[in-house]
Amino acid sequence: METDCTRHPGVAPLAAGTRLLHIGPHKTGTTAIQGALFAAKDDLPAHGVVFPAHSRHPMEAALAACARPAMMGDTVPTEKHWTRLLDAVRASGGRTSVVSSEFFADAPDDATALRIVEQLGGERVHVLVTLRPLARIMPSQWQQYVQNGLRMGYGDWLEHMLRKPPYEAPNPSFWRRHRHDRLVERWARVVGPERVTVVVVDDRDRDGLMRTFEKLLGLPEQILQPVPDTVNRSLTLAETEMVRNLNVEFRGNGLPDELYSRLVRNGAVLHMKNACSPTADDVKIVTPRWALESAAAVGAESAERIAGLGVRVIGDTALLGAVPESAEEPPAKARIAPEVAAQALYGALAAVAATAPASATGSQVRTVHQTPSKDLVRVLGHRCLKRLRRR
């Protein structure tokens, strides 16, 4: 096994013309890297590197390639998304190109991974896996699942993921992504261990991942810079609990998934993230001590197995099995600030306004006031769904 330090100036660059496939997984710095690469897109070709995606994150292309469903209520990705990305990669010619999406980690089997590699360029493909300790990933991943309709609280979710075999409910994708030794092993089987690099992210070094990418791609130092992204910020405990309780009501009333995508995730939650920044008074999602220790044990086992796979490792794999020094007790309750709730409500209303018929009249408003709330929600859902279908 070849091991380099993330800050070490001797990290050897990949061969010119490599097609670097960054597969994540989720919550390992993928958004930061994708944003930096996309922001530097016009400057990279001068250094022999191309970022061929047409957006910061080619999520639809990756989902289509892996034959995975879209997020709840979103448009189903098609082969056209993947074909468009492949065409852009091929157009890069002999230059190094970078394809990055954490959803490649969701490839269901070796055959799918092999097809992805062959279509991207076969022997030119080098797989990059970025890893962080599970203890840091779990709260972020839970709140992300909540934003996709999960109704289970954090404590119960941890019990299911860590203590209830076969550890697949309610999110079977979690361990597919985050049993990191198996993830690395799957892709090493497809391309060979000599064409897999694992980068262990050290959260104490905020610029470390950017600098490592620069060295691997042979880029000038500092060309990749962090891009502010409020949309990708994690929710606070109170915000997540608000969305989770909304999910319970949403499912209980049998509303369509398309309505959830437009009004909740891309309406209320999106506007709340953009308009409100967490403060020191906001309660964070806290993982209990038992779960931290369980996650660290899995991480330590993964680190040991990765060390024996023959892949290149950059960074300190001991971080994967470390238990955080201080672990707070989970708070009894977290209450959402009125202004945050108002912004979330406004986001949903703005999404309604974007889909509501322009011919709404005062008489209709009076009728609405006389309608029971449950019936009103159903009518609104059907109207929005009908509008979406027309579009």
Rank of each mutant, 00 (worst) to 15 (best):
V125F: 03
D42P: 02
K41F: 05
S92V: 06
L21F: 07
A344D: 03
D203A: 13
A39E: 08
Q370W: 05
A135Y: 00
A15L: 12
V117H: 02
E301P: 01
G24R: 04
T371Q: 11
T18D: 01
I336M: 10
A297V: 00
T3M: 09
E325Y: 10
L63T: 02
P139D: 06
R115L: 07
R265C: 06
R115A: 13
V89P: 01
A40R: 06
P330E: 09
D42M: 03
R366M: 14
G149C: 07
G48R: 07
W175G: 08
G254K: 14
H271S: 14
W142A: 04
H271M: 13
D229V: 03
M138I: 11
G93K: 08
A322H: 12
L21R: 03
L380M: 14
R84S: 15
H47P: 04
E185Y: 09
D109V: 01
P13T: 09
L150K: 08
P45A: 06
L162R: 04
L85V: 06
P165T: 00
G381P: 07
R182H: 14
R383L: 15
L237I: 07
H22W: 09
A297H: 05
Q364E: 14
I336T: 05
V199C: 14
A291R: 04
D257P: 09
R132G: 03
P108V: 06
V311L: 06
V298P: 01
R179D: 12
T240W: 02
H271A: 15
T197G: 11
T279W: 12
G48Q: 06
D257H: 14
A188K: 05
G381H: 03
A188W: 02
F103S: 06
R132I: 01
Q225K: 15
R378M: 12
H180Q: 15
A332N: 09
S173V: 09
S55Y: 03
L131E: 00
W290S: 13
V117N: 03
D156Y: 03
G299M: 00
S234V: 04
A275M: 11
R195S: 06
T112S: 12
M71F: 15
A91G: 12
F38T: 00
L37N: 04
G347K: 02
A322T: 10
A62D: 04
G122T: 04
P372I: 12
S363L: 13
W157E: 02
A297M: 08
E60C: 12
D281L: 13
A169V: 09
R19D: 06
H178M: 07
D205K: 05
A65H: 04
Q144R: 12
L20G: 06
R195A: 07
S101G: 11
R204G: 14
R387V: 10
P278M: 11
G299S: 08
D229I: 01
V49W: 02
E239M: 10
C276Y: 08
V117I: 07
A107D: 01
D281W: 09
